[in-house]
């Protein structure tokens, strides 16, 4: 009995050690964003006993274009997620329900588009967008984010549709539904939690995306992650402001995750978890 107690204590300590390792960098970023420069560099470290200030937020939102970047992020994330779902959900439904030759090949090909290094798309679209005059527009970045999102949408939604017994659409079709009505009126309401998870995961992917945002936008439609690196070069080591911008990027996503984690784990683990 005693040996078991010791083992449980060791496990308990290990669990909390890992939790601390994971919380620490985030705690550090958030607290630094509320510190004055003097407190940020203070030694010994002021964990919580510093003068809380919002000066960094006032600076990043007031003096820089961050508020614009924020709205760009919102617009691109919403547009690419909505369009990505509209395009991807029917394909997921077809892959789940239709009998098709080459179904596995098609499914693998859709997933394999994820393997391509982003620069492979970035160069052609950079050149094309410059000559077509659509460089640095919401439209261009939205299209690139749809690429990023689409294969996930198909993969995730197919796994959610696969969970619904096939008899459900069979009875719907006996009642006179077309395939399309079946999908919209029966399958999508049944899989609405999966649909929500897919939607939120799409938003996260677009919200965090950095490479296309950096290459294909400059001033007008730059999103939040790309703006962080401009902080690097313009302000040098203004940690307080960089942490404030980082907190703005990270916080909405963390809130989503805390509220939705059971739905999200399936997307995060490539469908390995039946959440």
């Amino acid at each position: 009995m005693k040996k078991k107690t010791i083992r449980r204590i060791i496990f308990f300590v290990l669990v909390w050690a890992v939790i601390i390792i994971y919380v620490m960098p985030l705690f550090w970023i958030v607290t630094t964003s509320f510190k004055t420069d003097a407190d940020a560099y203070a030694l010994p470290i002021k964990w919580l006993n510093f003068d809380w200030t919002t000066i960094n937020y006032i600076n990043v939102f007031g003096k820089s274009a961050l508020i614009k970047n924020f709205w760009n992020s919102v617009i691109v994330a919403l547009a690419s997620s909505v369009i990505g779902l509209c395009i991807g959900v029917p394909a997921a439904y077809a892959l789940s329900r239709f009998s098709m030759t080459h179904k596995n090949g098609l499914s693998t090909w859709i997933l394999s588009t994820r393997m391509a290094p982003p620069i492979l798309c970035a160069i052609p679209y950079y050149i094309l967008s410059k000559s077509l005059g659509i460089y640095d527009t919401h439209f261009l970045l939205t299209v690139m984010h749809i690429l990023l999102i689409l294969s996930w949408v198909v993969w995730m939604m197919q796994s959610f549709f696969d969970d619904v017994p096939i008899e459900v659409d069979e009875s719907g079709m006996l009642d006179g539904c077309s395939r399309f009505q079946c999908m919209i009126r029966i399958m999508m309401p049944i899989s609405r939690s999966g649909l929500t998870a897919t939607f939120i995961y799409s938003i996260i992917l677009s919200w965090n995306e950095y490479f296309f945002a950096m290459v294909l936008t400059s001033v007008k439609s730059q999103t939040l992650p790309a703006s962080i690196t401009s902080f690097l070069s313009v302000y040098g080591l203004m940690w307080g402001q960089m942490c404030a911008a980082s907190t703005v990027i990270m916080l909405p996503i963390l809130i989503f995750v805390f509220l939705m984690q059971n739905h999200l784990v399936r997307g995060l683990s490539m469908g390995a978890v039946k959440g």
Partner: peptide, 9 residues
């Protein structure tokens, strides 16, 4: 939460 935060952050 670590894997949903933007890699840049």
């Amino acid at each position: 939460s670590a894997m949903v935060i933007s890699p840049v952050v």
